[in-house]
């Protein structure tokens, strides 16, 4: 996976005409997109556009009911998040899957703890885990004061970054980020965007879900626009401008006010 990919190599993750219905409710219909190594795929859409359903399919939380999902060119159906994780697709949820009262390093390794010794003497490799946590966070450009502090004491951006670093360390080839910037201030959001770029530069595929074109455009390579449960198309960066993206997402009626609002921002 480390050598430069030939142009013929299949994308890490690809969906063709994928859809999901819950009983009589169609949550998502006919969405196609693909993600290559070292690429960032931004999934944009307003509330209720189907973003959540889309990532639930990719992360294995829900099975799709239509279309095909391909990982490394092979057709797949994920029965559980574990199955997705096993082939290197990790999801960083909005709630980040961290336990606030536990130290940063315990959170970093939670569920995949390092141990030493055998049998009844098998114990946590506390020193090793502390060191690796500190190093891995440093690689993401996070210089943590103290890996023993409860993770609940970190800022939102820092926690987000710890969650990304954790996914990367545990062999994720694709990281799905569910609205990582939505709850953050401008500066914190910038920090997270920087980590996304860093993850991309290290050869990961990143699926970045957001409703903010201004966050998506600087880091994205491809853009999948969703509206009312269906795709408005997948665009490469040179095929679409940020204004066009905004217009497509928002629709004509809201455009005037939105553009106005954005210009002043």
């Amino acid at each position: 996976m480390t050598e430069p990919i030939a142009s013929a190599a299949p994308p890490i993750l690809e969906v063709r005409g994928i859809g999901k219905s819950y009983g009589s409710i169609i949550a998502l219909r006919d969405v196609s997109a693909s993600l290559g190594v070292g690429e960032v795929l931004c999934v944009l859409g307003d509330n209720g556009a189907g973003k959540s359903t889309f990532i639930k399919i990719l992360s294995g939380a829900h099975e799709h009911t239509e279309g095909t999902l391909l990982a490394y060119g092979k057709e797949r159906t994920f029965g559980s998040p574990r199955e997705a994780l096993d082939i290197g697709i990790a999801t960083v949820y909005q709630d980040l899957a961290v336990v606030g009262l536990m130290p940063v390093w315990r959170n970093f390794f939670l569920g995949s703890e390092l141990t030493r010794g055998v049998g009844p003497f098998r114990r946590l490799d506390v020193k090793g885990m502390r060191r690796i946590t500190k190093d891995e966070l440093a690689k993401m450009g996070i210089d943590l004061r103290d890996v023993d502090q409860p993770i609940g004491t970190l800022s939102g951006g820092e926690r987000q970054s710890v969650a990304i670093a954790r996914a990367v360390y545990f062999g994720a080839k694709v990281v799905i980020l569910d609205e990582p910037t939505s709850a953050l201030g401008v500066k914190q959001a910038g920090v997270v965007l920087k980590y996304i770029a860093q993850a991309r530069d290290r050869g990961l595929g990143v699926v970045f879900i957001t409703h903010n074109p201004h966050h998506a455009y600087p880091v994205g390579d491809r853009f999948l626009l969703l509206k009312r449960g269906t795709s408005l198309g997948e665009f490469a960066k040179n095929e679409i401008t940020i204004e066009e993206m905004t217009r497509l997402m928002a629709g004509g009626a809201e455009l005037e006010t939105l553009a106005h609002e954005l210009e002043r921002a």
Partner: peptide, 16 residues
């Protein structure tokens, strides 16, 4: 580690 995690935040523990 798991005991602290399931008591602290069960959904998070399950997710990881």
């Amino acid at each position: 580690n798991w005991i602290f995690a399931v008591g602290g935040q069960m959904t998070s523990a399950r997710q990881v």
